[in-house]
């Protein structure tokens, strides 16, 4: 069995098993832990609109802080969009999605993806450097932060290397690329990557709770 066969086969299967167990464990565990409804009278009984509002409001920076966090704000959006464009709209990725979902969608020219991927890597590295050099950020960063960023960069990097056909031979490059995805799947439930599933529900929950709390003035 070559490295590529291993990456496409057993490694990918085990990664999906770990991913499935881990994600279900965390989601089920978390939802079952939601506290029972508070007994105090609600200030306003509109959890859906409060929750939805929180999701939207927390997706844009607060006015007072806006000019202080332009870089984080823009770079954060930039690399997230770049990342999803790359994984969802690169032609050779389509068979991967098709093999899992059973359907596909139109893709973008590979040159476009190359540029987008390269920009995404650059932004992620810039953010990593910032995390390492910013005194406050460094103090509050945990191993999870570093692992999550690196695990995110690797598929982009190995993908670009594989596409450009540099370094090892194509087969090994492709195998390393697939293994980097295996790494993402395995790490996903246990670290901050989990925010893909949790970011919006937690905002919703927080929004709904804060809307309820307090007394109408």
């Amino acid at each position: 069995m070559t490295l590529l066969d291993f990456a496409r086969g057993p490694a990918m299967q085990w990664a999906f098993v770990i991913f499935g167990i881990g994600v279900a464990w965390r989601l089920v565990g978390m939802f079952l832990l939601l506290r029972d409804r508070a007994k105090a009278r609600a200030r306003r009984d509109a959890p859906v609109s409060d929750g939805t509002r929180a999701i939207i409001m927390r997706s844009v920076p607060p006015k007072e802080l806006e000019h202080h966090i332009v870089f984080q704000h823009v770079s954060g959006y930039a690399w997230h969009i770049g990342f999803f464009v790359t994984i969802l709209f690169f032609g050779p990725h389509m068979p991967f999605w098709k093999s899992i979902l059973g359907f596909g969608w139109p893709t973008l020219p590979s040159e476009v993806i190359t540029v987008v991927g390269a920009i995404t890597i650059a932004v992620l590295i810039a953010l990593l450097v910032r995390r390492l050099s910013h005194p406050v950020l460094r103090v509050i960063s945990t191993a999870d932060d570093y692992i999550s960023v690196i695990v995110t960069i690797l598929p982009l990097l190995t993908g670009l290397i594989s596409y450009a056909n540099i370094g090892f031979d194509k087969e090994t490059n492709l195998a390393l690329h697939l293994l980097s995805i295996v790494l993402v799947l395995v790490w996903f439930p246990f670290g901050k990557l989990m925010h893909l599933f949790l970011a919006f529900p937690t905002r919703y929950k927080a929004g709904a709770d804060y809307g309820r709390k307090g007394v109408a003035a």
């Binding site: 299967q13 999906f16 499935g20 279900a24 492709l174 697939l178």
Partner: peptide, 19 residues
Amino acid sequence: SEVEWGGWTQLGTAAAAGA
């Protein structure tokens, strides 16, 4: 780029175990 990912049954079983 197609992978042997195990299929929905396997993923479902894993998710059930996780749940």
